[in-house]
Amino acid sequence: MEFKHVQTAHCENGVIVGLLKHQGVNKITEPLAFGLGSGLFYIHIPFLKIQGGPAIAFRSMPGSIFKRTCKTLNIEMNRKKFNDPKKGEQYLNKKLAENIPVGCQAGVFHLDYFADEYRFHFNAHNLIVYGRNETGYLVSDPVMEDVTTLSYDKMERARFAKGALAPKGHLYYPSKVNEITDAMIRNGIVKGIKHNVRDMLDIPGKLAGVKGIGYTAGKVRKLREKGQKEAGLYLGQIIRMQEEIGTGGGGFRFLYAAFLEEAVAYMHDDRLLAFSEKITKAGDLWRDSAVQMAGVYKGRLTAQSDYDAIADLMLEIKAKEFEVFSGLRKLKLK
């Protein structure tokens, strides 16, 4: 079948955009999908460690952007999970034979078209399968520049990867797409922003939303006691969550700024532009903090004042993002 590959910053947005464009919905862009799905977030989960570093996320739970965006746009999704890999394979092949491109959840470790350096056991990646031949599947992976292929064996391993967030063969495709009107998008923007405001400001406790940034800052301030090596791994982990492929840069903040900019045109509301600018500034500050953190794990910056400088910068970011989301709340968008 004919499938037009769309490259995006983030895989989840990318699969939505790719599958919807295939259905002729051209209005949807990555920033819109991200904003309608209230994708921006911050959370620091203590106790949980990932490769020696903290579990930190700059975006909402895997799958949630997808769910919220489809709900807002009244798109019906057909989704399935499987216990038996063979049944999962048969179902995928059947859909492909019906000329339906299918979104699949996949474990990154088994995707050998990625460079080895990136292949960790992360199971919430998303890609589109749009065909197959004798040797394997034709894959449109949204973070890749171009389409690629994956062998039958690797596809099965990826779709049935085990561990946290195991995909269990999870696949999905839009079963019914109604016309998407500007009014629906406007409505979605209002809802999406409101939800994001709540996520960033209202979650009780000190770990989620802007408060979470302050929590991480406190941890960073005390990091020097743990020694250079552990501190380096800790900060490196933050940077990878913040800047690695899939984020669009600056911990998804630039992507959100692009969303607010698009929202101006739909909402005919110039006030949003100032918030786009402010969240851009927050993204720039995140990038600055990454540069300083790199100084620590490259062994260039080792004094307590260097750790304090990073923590202070994070508090500045916290204040900036508080300003953005409390300001958005005050707009009382309708």
């Binding site: 490769q51 350096e117 791994l233 490196g236 940077i239 990878r240 800047e243 690695e244 953190m293 794990y297």
Partner: peptide, 15 residues
């Protein structure tokens, strides 16, 4: 970007 390349290299060095 050098900054995140160093982070990834660091993680691999540890592995």
């Amino acid at each position: 970007w050098d900054v995140k390349k160093a982070a990834l290299d660091n993680a691999w060095e540890d592995i």
